[in-house]
């Protein structure tokens, strides 16, 4: 398959998005959004990471098998997060809680 050449214009647009989202997450951290502040910060970070992977890292144009490797690594990351959390965050149900 011929290699896909991403235009420099696309790269500049992605860069502008990344700069904007960084400024946004910095600015939002000064607002008191309660529990939402962490959720929004992680969502912004995930958005930035996604567009870096899709365009700077060419995942959007990659071979299927390469895309599968990318998605699979996220899947295993999810297993690590979820299974570990099910232990630690259910350990103290109805009993002693630290701090």
């Amino acid at each position: 398959m011929a290699e896909h050449v991403v235009t420099t214009k696309t790269y500049y647009i992605i860069w502008a998005f990344l700069m904007f989202f960084t400024a946004l997450t910095f600015g939002l951290s000064y607002l008191d959004l309660g529990a939402w502040s962490a959720v929004i910060a992680v969502l912004i970070a995930a958005t930035k990471a996604t567009i870096i992977a899709l365009f700077f890292m060419h995942m959007k144009y990659a071979e299927k098998v390469t895309q599968v490797v990318g998605v699979a690594s996220l899947f295993w990351l999810g297993i690590m997060f979820v299974l570990t959390a099910t232990d630690f965050f259910t350990r103290y149900f109805g009993t002693y809680a630290p701090q």
């Binding site: 960084t22 997450t25 910095f26 951290s29 000064y30 008191d32 502040s37 962490a38 910060a41 992680v42 912004i44 970070a45 930035k48 990471a49 870096i52 992977a53 700077f56 890292m57």
Partner: peptide
């Protein structure tokens, strides 16, 4: 380039998690 962007992505997550956790409070 793939390696460089990956290292950037790690920082994209480290930045809010380390620096922006309710620093105002």
């Amino acid at each position: 380039g793939l390696y460089w962007h990956f290292v950037d992505i790690v920082w994209v997550f480290l930045y809010p998690m380390l620096y922006l956790v309710a620093h105002r409070h």
